[in-house]
């Protein structure tokens, strides 16, 4: 446990020294304000860039409420561009250590392989959740300012469940890193799997019950007034995360 703590602390220190905390937070904050701004000033934007002859703005269209805007920030910005950048920032989390020989130095100490793998998982989860939380908070404040309020508690509920999806994604990067050495390929494969899961949850109802991305639906439901808390999805997401790390550990020894 002590070694896990030392390793997590080193991951966090590295993120601080390499300014990952700053640029990732700035990035998610920017994403967080983009969607509310676009929604609010869509008319103005279209008027400025569109050819008036070709664009007809429905004057009776429904004005989105705060929750809708916030949801589109999450599903449109965070789950697409945000997810890609997040995965790219993680792609070297195992490969860099392996290539530099740092991994050998760590694993020859009285450190268990799983302490090492879980330190990567926890460390990068904390880094991402810090940045995402700040981005979400900025987005929340902007949305509330521009579109009206919605419950902060709902937002917290959303964040807790969303963090499980991020946890799963990091475990996926770790698992793929034990099979593939090339960082770019690690990123491409993880992004492909992540989008596949997101696609699958929308595509098949039966399948969606067992895919890790189902937790995203559950997180979004916290914002809407659907007080559904599907413990099975929470359990499946956590179980798949643990499974990924266990598989990574088993594969690791065979390198």
């Amino acid at each position: 446990m002590n070694n896990l703590f030392i390793l997590v602390r080193a991951e966090l220190a590295e993120a601080l020294k390499e300014y990952k905390f700053i640029w990732l937070t700035l990035f998610f904050s920017t994403l967080g304000v983009t969607q509310p701004l676009i929604n609010k000033y869509m008319d103005v934007i279209l008027n400025h860039i569109g050819d008036t002859a070709g664009i007809v703005i429905d004057p009776n269209r429904q004005v989105p409420n705060a929750t809708d805007v916030f949801l589109s920030t999450i599903s449109g910005q965070f789950n697409q561009i945000g997810l890609i950048i997040l995965i790219i920032s993680f792609m070297g989390l195992i490969a860099t250590d392996r290539n530099s020989g740092m991994q050998d130095f760590i694993l020859t100490r009285p450190v268990s392989l799983y302490s090492y793998l879980y330190s990567k998982l926890i460390g990068h989860w904390l880094i991402s959740m810090f940045s995402i939380s700040v981005g979400v908070l900025v987005s929340y404040l902007y949305t509330v300012y521009l579109f009206g309020t919605f419950s902060f508690l709902k937002l917290l509920g959303f964040l807790v469940l969303y963090s499980l999806w991020i946890l799963y994604l990091i475990s996926l990067v770790i698992l793929i890193s034990t099979f593939v050495k090339n960082q770019i390929l690690i990123a491409i494969l993880t992004i492909t799997f992540a989008f596949f899961w997101i696609f699958t949850k929308n595509f098949s109802h039966a399948l969606s019950q067992i895919v890790p991305a189902k937790i995203l639906t559950l997180a979004e439901h916290q914002l809407l007034d659907l007080h559904e808390l599907n413990y099975v999805s929470v359990f499946i997401c956590l179980m798949l995360t643990v499974l990924n790390i266990s598989w990574a550990g088993a594969k690791f020894n065979k390198f």
């Binding site: 220190a13 530099s100 740092m102 130095f105 020859t108």
Partner: peptide, 13 residues
């Protein structure tokens, strides 16, 4: 056990 690997590198920072 103390170990020195063939390719020595550390966290650059």
């Amino acid at each position: 056990i103390g170990y020195l690997s063939q390719y020595t590198d550390f966290k650059a920072w």
